[in-house]
Design a protein around this nucleic acid. Structure first.
Lengths: 106, 106
DNA sequence: TGTGTATATTAGTATATATTCATATAATAA
DNA sequence: TTATTATATGAATATATACTAATATACACA
């Protein structure tokens, strides 16, 4: 008689799962990325407008957006030379929102 | 007429909130800490048994447990010279579990 | 073709982090 | 007391990370 593997005995996690999970949380572990994702909660924004709004260098924002894009947490659409970024992972955004609500009492 | 602050306009997050949120996710962003917390899902465990189970040095486990304890993600009880650690934050453990389930298809 | 604008990339640097070894502390038993 | 066991701590090191300045690329338009 076997138990369902998610109960009773904790198997060690396989390497791929560990990597994906740790990378996901790493994305949310940096104040700059949190601020960027927080901006993208309700609307899409261009790289420059994100930079201006948050008082960050264009280069800094672009680097962090690449990080988030690699994890498929954001996506973009092009309009001329402007790239509009928006969030692309409901689960992660929900976790972020909940944790922010939990942390700040506004 | 003011909107509820959580709608329409995204205010920038205050520094304290950013710190708390980023630290919370940082706790979950390291494979070693994930493995430790994963072990503590269902039971309490001593430092040495965690180290043995995960094939880690006692020192490594102790350092990471201190990190987790500072964030109040784990607590411990003493029995003689042995300290039994267990998880102490349902919200964080729930996020971790969900993200693991989402990442691995076992 | 050139010019201007928006974004991406590269390389360098400073800081943060995880691990390890060696040692310290704490509780217990003999 | 001394010895033993379990855990914590401090210092050193290697790696990872975030930011910046400078430059490259991509697109639009004259």
């Amino acid at each position: 008689m076997e138990e369902n593997n998610s109960s009773e005995v904790a198997k060690d996690l396989d390497e791929e799962t560990l990597f994906v999970v740790s990378q996901t949380f790493k994305a949310l572990s940096d104040p700059t990325r949190i601020r960027i994702l927080h901006l993208l909660f309700h609307k899409e924004m261009s790289v420059n407008s994100i930079a201006e709004t948050l008082h960050l260098r264009q280069s800094t924002v672009s680097h962090q957006l690449r990080f988030l894009k690699n994890l498929r947490l954001v996506k973009f659409r092009r309009e001329g030379t402007t790239l509009y970024y928006s969030h692309d992972d409901e689960h992660v955004m929900h976790m972020l929102k909940q944790t922010i609500d939990h942390a700040c009492h506004n």
